[in-house]
């Protein structure tokens, strides 16, 4: 597959931050040699899952061209994001790639009406010449998310529920008719009774609007529910990736296994297993700096080699795993 067949092609991106002063500061590799790609013709929901400090939010910023990678490249529709400099090019990029943020109450200024953002988006991206003409475009986008213009007209953010606001946020992102949505924890701040509406919305957009979605989350249950493929991140690395049902039904990497086991299931009968004590292991900083596998300190199946060198990507059972346990089992 050449780059041109891909909507998004992430090629070995690495982002390094320097923490502390020039002297005595530490290097933190927030995103470490991550590669994946999305198909141009077949829209999908791709989940980046990980705990806090896994680098998933930094990766999202790299994909949004909010941050330049230290090495590697992010290529969108054949164009390296690093070549986007002018305002015209930036607008052209934003037209195709739009974000949905985590906290719907923070997404809009509390002192502005939410509809203003929708009109601004329609006019700035050339979907309408003036506010009157934009109202058709805005109403159309709101209908896609199950709202209407009447419901949000003259409303301030606090007058809408978290669920409604998050749908307005998605509607705003849809106005430029993007090819890709980047949703960073879009439901973690939304109430339980409204959450599934948002989650189902992403499914519907993929199927009916041909929009690909990168869903960034710590919540494996919703990831399983909506996504096609998943990448599990640990300390900047993608440790396991593949089709979501493969990865989460039968996780191979010991970290994915621990992660899946730790998700509480809403089934009281299974609690004995969940309550079983586990080892919490070392602190974050130590794991970032660890040589070899980042999970070696907590891994129940750790081997000597894990502490010495970084495990390579191993293709096994339809997925890619960074773990020595599966060396020699590669599928072609």
């Amino acid at each position: 597959m050449s780059t041109y067949d891909k909507l998004l092609d992430v090629q070995r991106v690495t982002a390094v931050f320097h923490i502390g002063s020039i002297i005595g500061g530490t290097r933190l590799v927030a995103v470490n040699d991550v590669s994946f790609s999305l198909d141009r013709t077949r829209p999908e929901i791709f989940t980046l899952a990980g705990e806090s400090g896994s680098g998933k939010t930094t990766l999202a910023r790299l994909l949004l061209h909010d941050l330049e990678p230290t090495s590697g490249a992010v290529i969108f529709e054949g164009r390296d994001l690093a070549t986007i400099k002018s305002r015209k090019d930036t607008l052209e990029f934003m037209k195709k790639v739009q974000p949905v943020f985590q906290n719907p109450f923070e997404t809009f200024s509390p002192l502005r009406r939410v509809e203003d953002y929708l009109y601004d988006t329609a006019i700035n991206f050339g979907r309408a010449k003036n506010r009157r003409m934009a109202s058709v475009v805005v109403d159309e986008a709101l209908h896609l998310v199950g709202l209407s213009l009447e419901e949000v007209t003259r409303r301030y953010p606090h007058e809408l529920s978290g669920g409604q606001l998050q749908r307005v946020s998605v509607a705003r992102a849809l106005i430029p008719q993007p090819r890709l949505l980047l949703a960073d924890e879009p439901v973690s701040m939304v109430d339980a009774s409204l959450r599934m509406a948002i989650v189902n919305l992403f499914r519907k957009l993929r199927d009916e609007q041909q929009v690909s979605v990168i869903y960034i989350t710590h919540d494996l249950a919703t990831a399983y529910y909506i996504s096609d493929r998943i990448a599990i991140m640990l300390r900047g690395l993608v440790v396991e990736s593949g089709p979501v049902n493969e990865v989460l039904d039968r996780p191979l990497h010991p970290y994915t296994q621990v992660l899946k086991e730790s998700v509480p299931e809403p089934v009281p009968e299974q609690r004995a297993q969940w309550i079983r004590p586990i080892d919490l292991g070392t602190t974050e900083v130590k794991e970032y700096a660890r040589i070899g596998c980042k999970f070696a300190g907590r891994c129940p199946r750790v081997m000597d080699i894990c502490r010495q060198t970084n495990p390579p990507d191993i293709h096994v059972e339809g997925r890619i795993v960074k773990c020595y346990l599966y060396q020699g089992q590669e599928s072609s």
């Binding site: 599934m196 399983y224 989460l248 998700v263 089934v267």
Partner: peptide
């Protein structure tokens, strides 16, 4: 409405 791993 609670999602669960293993149930789509």
């Amino acid at each position: 409405s609670l999602p669960m791993i293993g149930d789509r």
